[in-house]
Design a protein around this nucleic acid. Structure first.
Lengths: 216, 216
DNA sequence: GCTTGAATCACACGTGACGTCAGGTTGTAG
DNA sequence: CTACAACCTGACGTCACGTGTGATTCAAGC
C-alpha cells in the first residue's frame, strides 16, 4: 500500500479518510483501515475498483461477484499452470537453446518438442511404455470425442477403464517427494491445507527427503 | 488481434508493415505475420512489449527472459490456485452467505471459516479423523521448524513418517474422478499432458464418471 | 462502370490502477 | 530548535490497447 493508492481510492470515492489533522494529513480510524484491508483483499481476488465499490454499496451481491469471477480465475489458473510448466521445461533444460526465431507458430510446437525430448531422455523403459499407453488412450479418446460418441458408450468406456488402470499405476509408482506434496496439495486443498504455508511445506519436503531410502 | 493492436505495435516500433497498397492500407507478408505470431506468443507468456522488443533485437537472451519470468509465473500460479480454491468453496457452499463486512482482516479468516465448516459438515468420521491427524502433523512440524530443528532430526523424522503414511492413505482412499484427474495432471504434467486440452480432459472425466460404480 | 457496404486509414482522446515528479507543508526525534 | 522524513495537492506519465470521428479504400454484386 502506497500513499498514492489511498489517494486514488479516495479520488474514486471508494474510501474516505475519517478525519484530518490540523495540518491536513489524512487520519484513518480502525474502521477505515478495515475497509482498506477489505479493498485490498477483493483486489487481490482480481476485482476492479468499480466492482468493489458496487459490492460495498450493496448494489451487487458478493456471491454473484465471486461466482462470476470464479470463471476468470479458473481460466487464469489453467493458463498460468500450462505456461509455468512450459517455461519450467524450457529453462531447466539446458540442452534446448531457444531463440525467438525458433518459436514459429506460437507455442504449439512446444508440445512436440516436449514429447520428443521426453522420449529421447528417458532412462527408464517403464516410463516410456507408460507414455506410449497414455498417448494411445489420448488418441483413442480424442477419436471418440471427434466422432461425437457418448462418453459412456462402449468404446469410451473401454478407454476409461484403461485410463483408470494407468492412473492407479502411476499414482502408486511415481511417488517422489515433491510429487507427493503436489498430489497432497491437490487432494486436500484447501481443506487440510489451512495453516500450511510454503515454508512449512518446504520443511516437510526436506523431512520427507531425509527418509527417502527408508522403508515404510 | 485487432487492427488497433497492429497499429500499436507499429507505433512502438515493434512491427512494421512490409508494404502498403496504393491506397495506404498495410500489407503484411508471411514474415511479418510470423513476427506478429511471435509477439502474441510472448505476450501470452506475460512479457511486456518492451521486453519482447529487447528479446527480438537480441539485446536480451530469451532464456534469461524466460528464467526471469518463471518466478512471476510460479507466484501467479500459486496465488491463483489458492484464490480459485477459496472462491470455489465460497461459491459452491450455498450455506455460507458472505457479506463484505464478514471479510474482516483480509482473507486470513477464510481459512478458519473453511476448517470450521469442514468439521461441522463432514458426514464421514474417517475424514474428520484424518483432518485431526493432519492438524497434529502440521502443528508438530511447525513446532520443529520454529525451534530450528533440522528437517532430518529425530522428531521431524517421526512426523515425516506419519505424514507419509497419511498421504498414502488419502491418495489411496479419496479417489473420485475429478480428484484423480487433478492428481494425474500434477503427476504427469506437462510430460504426458501434451495434446490433452481441457475439453478432452472433461470428456475423460465424463467417461470415468460413467463407470464409477463398476469394479476395477 | 457503378454502387454499396464493410474494412481500413490517421488522429486523438479515454481507460484503469496507479507511478512519478514538483514545490510546498507538517510531524516528530534528537 | 532544527533536521528531515513523511505527507500534502495537482498534474502529468505509463501500458496496452479501446473507442470514436470523419475520410478513404477495397471487394463484390449488378
Amino acid at each position: 500500500m502506497t500513499v498514492r493508492t489511498l489517494h486514488h481510492y479516495e479520488h474514486t470515492g471508494l474510501l474516505a479518510a475519517s478525519e484530518r489533522t490540523d495540518g491536513g494529513h489524512r487520519m484513518y480510524d480502525r474502521e477505515s483501515v478495515q475497509r482498506v484491508h477489505q479493498i485490498r483483499a477483493l483486489r487481490e481476488l482480481g476485482f476492479s475498483l468499480h466492482e468493489i465499490r458496487k459490492a460495498m454499496e450493496g448494489t451487487t451481491s458478493l456471491i454473484d461477484l465471486l461466482r462470476k469471477h470464479l470463471e476468470r480465475i479458473e481460466l487464469q489458473v489453467a493458463r498460468a499452470t500450462l505456461l509455468r510448466d512450459r517455461l519450467r521445461d524450457m529453462t531447466t533444460d539446458s540442452e534446448i537453446q531457444v531463440s525467438v526465431d525458433e518459436l514459429p507458430a506460437t507455442l504449439v510446437a512446444m508440445s512436440r518438442v516436449e514429447t520428443r525430448n521426453q522420449t529421447s531422455r528417458c532412462t527408464c523403459k517403464l516410463v516410456a511404455e507408460r507414455d506410449e499407453r497414455w498417448r494411445r488412450i489420448r488418441d483413442e479418446l480424442r477419436d471418440c470425442m471427434d466422432r461425437g460418441e457418448h462418453p459412456c458408450g462402449e468404446r469410451a468406456k473401454a478407454v476409461a477403464v484403461a485410463a483408470r488402470l494407468l492412473i492407479g499405476e502411476i499414482a502408486g509408482a511415481d511417488s517422489r517427494v515433491s510429487t507427493i506434496l503436489k498430489v497432497l496439495a491437490r487432494l486436500s486443498a484447501p481443506r487440510s491445507l489451512a495453516g500450511w504455508d510454503p515454508s512449512l511445506m518446504q520443511y516437510l519436503d526436506l523431512a520427507l527427503a531425509g527418509l527417502e531410502d527408508q522403508p515404510y
